[in-house]
Simulated scan of single mutants.
Amino acid sequence: MKELYPKKGRVILHVDMNSFFASVEMAYDPSLKDKPLAIAGDEEARKGIVVTCSYEARKYGVKTTMPLWEAKKLCPHLIIKRPNFERYRNASMALFEILRRYSELVEPVSIDEGYIDITECYELGSPIEIANDIQQSLLNQLDLPCSIGIAPNKFLAKMASDMKKPLGITVLRKRDIAEVIWPLPTVEMHGIGNKTGEKLATLHIHSIGDLAKASDFVLKAHLGIRGLQLKERANGIDTRHVDPDAAEENKSVGNSVTLPKDISNQSKLLEILESLSESVSTRLKKKGYVTKNISITIRYYNRKTISRGKKIINPIVESKDIYQAAKSLFLNNWKGDPVRLLGITGQDLINEDHAYEQLDLFSYEKAAQKEPLYKAIDKIKSKYGKSILQKGSDLQKK
């Protein structure tokens, strides 16, 4: 089988569980199989949101983040189940245990998906045979379906796994990119959400092929380093390794500065925090991560040191967002004494490519409920200018 593997390069699989929460519920209670099922919040509350749903429910137009009342209108006989996170965590641990039987190089990226490097696994069969075996093992042992992408790198493997659902296996080679990937709209590219897609559209970049051929200067000017990374992905370039220790190694990214003298001037200290925020943001972007937890460190003139942190509902990476979180922590915890050291750290890191899928499940409904508000604000600003809506605190300063 060794001749079926590249002499140079890697063979990477992306294993993506199909409608994971709903599938776990159906495995736990087989009577739910082949029925329209939604995992959602409080059924009695009109504000409940669909977290995920079975493929049978999707046939009726039910979608993730859809208000529950709308889902039930589309599918009156929809079965609603409250999320059981303990059950999902146990199923997740079991599925990754199965993956590790094939290779030590397994990198979980979320509760229901991960990468596995099978470059040295040729004794187990061809890449397609191994993918088939993994898919059948998950079905037979856990009663959970998955789709698998086979490719020379992580990005293409992820794109491939999305192409056939449920229970698909797709091979995507670099020579297939121009024909298979480039004609797709940018929003279908892994790592690009609606907002980035809209921004690219203003630059006349509508397809993944457009992005692959776009000007480096234009992309960097409008999207920063991230723009160049996206162009690389569009060209099938991804040098990231499958790293089993990635979650442990990338627990935090931070920066601190020891001041040349003790400072007690609030505006000066906030300027330093703003500079540190920019540094942390740059480092996160270079590593390809976003953060869900910001902490600050304050060391006083007498060497007394305190650290305080706050969890962020949705992952952040931009310096202005990091600064706002750090500023809030600082103002709530600084007692006015002279400061000798300041630091900011981003923790609970998530791979940026997966961030848009990684809304904290426990706050999923709150985030989804706010979406219409955000859209309304964007429309108002688009029509009347960015300054039409301002924070009360900003107006007070003026």
Rank of each mutant, 00 (worst) to 15 (best):
K8F: 10
G9C: 09
N18R: 02
S23Y: 02
V24K: 03
M26P: 08
Y28R: 14
P30D: 02
L37H: 07
D42N: 15
A45D: 14
R46H: 08
I49N: 03
T52D: 01
Y55I: 06
E56W: 07
K63N: 09
K63Y: 06
T64V: 06
N84E: 05
S92F: 00
M93V: 14
L99Y: 00
Y102N: 05
S103D: 00
E104W: 08
E104Y: 05
V106E: 01
I111D: 00
E113D: 01
G114R: 00
Y122N: 03
Y122I: 00
G125T: 11
I130V: 00
I130N: 04
D133W: 15
L139A: 08
C146Q: 05
I148W: 05
F155V: 04
A157E: 01
M159H: 10
A160C: 03
A160M: 12
T170N: 12
L172S: 04
K174N: 13
I177V: 05
V187C: 03
M189N: 03
H190I: 13
H190E: 11
I192R: 00
K195W: 12
K195C: 07
E198F: 05
K199G: 02
L200G: 04
T202L: 11
H204F: 10
D210T: 04
L211I: 12
L211G: 05
A212R: 00
K213N: 10
L219H: 01
L223Y: 01
I225V: 11
R226Q: 12
R226Y: 14
L228G: 04
L230D: 00
L230G: 01
K231C: 08
K231I: 02
A234H: 01
P244A: 05
D245C: 10
E248R: 15
E249Q: 15
K251H: 10
N255I: 14
N255F: 12
V257L: 13
N265G: 13
Q266R: 15
S267I: 12
L269G: 03
L270E: 13
S277N: 03
S277G: 06
K287C: 09
V290S: 12
N293W: 13
I298L: 04
R299A: 09
K304V: 13
R308M: 11
R308F: 09
G309P: 11
I322F: 10
L331F: 06
W334V: 12
K335D: 14
R340C: 09
L342W: 01
Q347S: 14
Q347K: 13
H354D: 10
A355T: 07
Y356H: 13
Q358R: 14
S363W: 07
Y364T: 03
A367F: 05
Q369M: 08
E371W: 05
K375R: 06
D378M: 06
S382L: 06
S387V: 09
S393G: 08
D394E: 15
